[in-house]
Write a protein that binds this DNA or RNA. Structure first.
Lengths: 305, 305
DNA sequence: TTGCTGTGTTTTCTTGGCAAAATACACAGT
DNA sequence: ACTGTGTATTTTGCCAAGAAAACACAGCAA
C-alpha cells in the first residue's frame, strides 16, 4: 500500500465524514466532483484520487448515476494525521519557533539553513523559503553568501520600536473611541476588563496569564483602526516585542503587576469613553513597555559579550 | 580557459585596482589574505582564487614574504562585468520589475512561477524565492498549491493605505521640524525646493520629472523620523503607491501640476519652520494623493471586469 | 444549452546533487 | 601568544527532475 500524501489523507478523512452522513439514507449519492472540490477547498484531481481510494476500499462505488456511498466508514478507514508530517512549511515553522521560544536563538546568534534542514527533516529549499518569509518580522537577516543571524540590539532599537508602535496604536485608539456605542468591541473590552480583575484578585497564582491578557487587549485596540496596514504591522511589532521579552526573567512578576494595573486603568478610561484619559493611560503603558524592552536588550547584550 | 564566476570576476577587477596602486612602488606587497577579504567583503577563499588567477597571469607572485605585485595590470586584464549576468536573484528581480513597470501585471492578474522562470532564464526555485521576498510589499499573494496573483483593489485599499502613510509621515514631519537648524536635512530640502522651482518654470517640458521630485521629498521627510521601522514601512508604502499610479495616464499632467504646487507649499513651510503650516500642507498633499489613488483603483477595476 | 466526467496538460512542491564560496582547523614563523 | 598561510569541512546558490496537485478541454448526457 502506497503512502498517501498529507493532502490526500486529510481530504479522505473529510470525505469519510460526508459519506457517514449519507450512507444508508435514501439519498446516498455524493454531489459532483466539482462541488466537492470547491467545498473541501482542493482541486478536482485530488477529489478524484480520494474517490478512487474509497472505491478501492469498497466504501464508495461509481455507477452511471454518480458516486454512491456503499457502506458506512469504520474507524480504521480514517487516517491518523495528528502525528503525520503535514506540510513541510509547518514542520520547519514550528521547529524554528520552538528554537526561538526555548531561547536557543539569542540576538546575534548565527545559524545555517543546512543545520535547520537536517534537524527538522526538511530540505534546504524549504527552510530557506520559510526564513525569507519569516524575515519580514525583522528578527533575522542575512547577507548574500553568508549565514543568517538573529538581529542584534543596539541603543535605538527599543526606542524606535516603541515609537513606531505608539504612533500606530494611538491612531487605532482614537479611531476606536470614535466607534458606535453598540459596536461589538465594547462588549469585548468589558470582558477583557473582567478577566483582568479576576486575575488581579488572585495575582500570585495567575500572573502568568498577564501576557495573554496583554495580547488580547492590544489586539482589540488595534482592530479598532480598521486598517489592514496598521493591523499587519501591528502583528509584526507584537511578535518582535514578545520575542525580546523572554529573556530577563527576574523582576518579571513585578513588571506584570504594573502592566496589569496599567491595563485596568486604560480599559476603564476606554469604557468611560474618556479620550484624554485613554490616551494618557496608553502612553503610560507604552512607556513602561519601552523600559522593559530596554532592560531586556541590555541584559542580553551583556550576556553575549 | 575556464569561465570565472561573477563574484570572482568582480573581485579580480577590484584587486587589479589595488595592484595598480602599489605595483612599482617600494612597498609592492599586498596585505594579508584576511585583510583583503574583509576589505573587499568576500571570503578568504575567494581572495585566494583571485590571487591564484593573477598569479597565473603573471601579475602577482607569492613568495616567502607575501604577495608581491610584479607588473601593472593592463586594460585587457580586467573583466567586462557590465554585460555579465550577475546573481540570478538580480536577474529575476529586474525582469519582474520590468513586467510591473510596463503594465503587464495589473491587479488581479495571475501568473505562474514556471512562466517567469522560463522567460527570465532562471530556475523555478530562484523565482519562487524572489517572489516570497517580494511579497512583503503586499502587492502579490498566493495560496498553497495555486498560482500567484497581483492583489486586487477593493474599496478600502486606497483609503487605508493613505491613512497609514499619513500617520507615519506626520510623525516624521514633526520630528524633522524638531531637528537642529544646522542639520544636513535643511540644505537638502533647500536643494529640493530649488529643483521644484526649476521644473515649474519649464513645466510643459519637464513635468515628467515630478515623480522623482516627489520621491526625493518624501524620502527626505521620512528620514527625518530617524526610526528604522518607520523607514522600512515607508519604503513599502512608496513602492505600492508608485505601482498603483502607473495606470490612469489621462489627466496625469494636471495632477502632477497640482502635486508640484503642493510640494512647493510644503517645502516653503518646512524651511520657514512653521509647524502648523507644514502639517496643513502635508495633509492637503496626502489628501490629493488619496484622490489620485482612488481614481487609479476604480479605473483599473472597471477595466478588468 | 448546461452540467458532469474522462483525459491530457501545466504548475507547484519536494528532493538530491554539484560547483562555488564561506568557514573552521592545523600548523608554521615571528 | 599572535598573525598569516595552507588545507579540510561546511554551507550557500543554483539546477534538473519526478511526484503530486491544479487546471484546461473535449465529449457526453439530460
Amino acid at each position: 500500500m502506497k503512502n498517501k500524501s498529507y493532502l490526500v489523507q486529510k481530504t479522505i478523512n473529510l470525505m469519510l465524514d460526508k459519506v457517514k452522513d449519507i450512507a444508508g439514507s435514501n439519498e446516498s449519492y455524493l454531489s459532483s466532483d466539482l462541488a466537492l472540490a470547491t467545498e473541501l477547498d482542493v482541486s478536482r484531481t485530488t477529489i478524484r484520487t480520494v474517490i478512487g481510494e474509497l472505491e478501492e476500499k469498497g466504501i464508495i462505488k461509481r455507477d452511471s448515476i454518480g458516486k454512491r456511498a456503499v457502506r458506512k466508514p469504520k474507524k480504521s478507514d480514517y487516517y491518523d494525521i495528528s502525528t503525520s508530517s503535514s506540510t513541510k512549511e509547518e514542520v520547519i515553522q514550528s521547529y524554528f519557533l520552538s528554537l526561538i521560544n526555548s531561547g536557543k536563538l539569542l540576538p546575534g546568534t548565527r545559524f545555517s539553513e543546512l543545520e535547520l534542514a537536517k534537524q527538522s527533516g526538511c530540505n534546504t529549499v524549504t527552510v530557506r523559503e520559510f526564513l525569507v518569509k519569516f524575515s519580514r518580522f525583522g528578527l533575522i537577516e542575512k547577507d548574500p553568501r553568508s549565514q543568517w543571524q538573529m538581529v542584534k540590539f543596539d541603543d535605538g532599537f527599543a526606542e524606535e520600536l516603541i515609537e513606531f508602535r505608539k504612533v500606530l496604536e494611538m491612531r487605532a485608539l482614537v479611531k476606536l473611541l470614535d466607534q458606535d456605542k453598540d459596536a461589538a468591541v465594547w462588549g469585548e473590552l468589558e470582558q477583557i476588563l473582567a478577566d483582568h480583575k479576576s486575575v488581579k484578585s488572585n495575582f500570585n497564582k495567575r500572573y502568568q496569564e498577564v501576557p495573554d491578557l496583554d495580547a488580547r487587549l492590544h489586539l482589540a485596540i488595534q482592530k479598532g483602526a480598521n486598517n489592514r496596514f496598521i493591523n499587519q504591522f501591528f502583528e509584526v511589532v507584537s511578535f518582535v516585542c514578545h520575542y525580546h521579552y523572554q529573556w530577563k526573567k527576574e523582576g518579571e512578576k513585578e513588571r506584570l503587576k504594573v502592566a496589569l494595573n496599567e491595563h485596568i486603568e486604560l480599559l476603564t478610561s476606554l469604557l468611560a469613553r474618556d479620550v484624554a484619559a485613554s490616551v494618557r493611560a496608553l502612553e503610560l503603558h507604552l512607556d513602561s513597555a519601552e523600559r522593559t524592552l530596554m532592560a531586556c536588550s541590555t541584559s542580553v547584550n551583556n550576556e553575549s559579550s
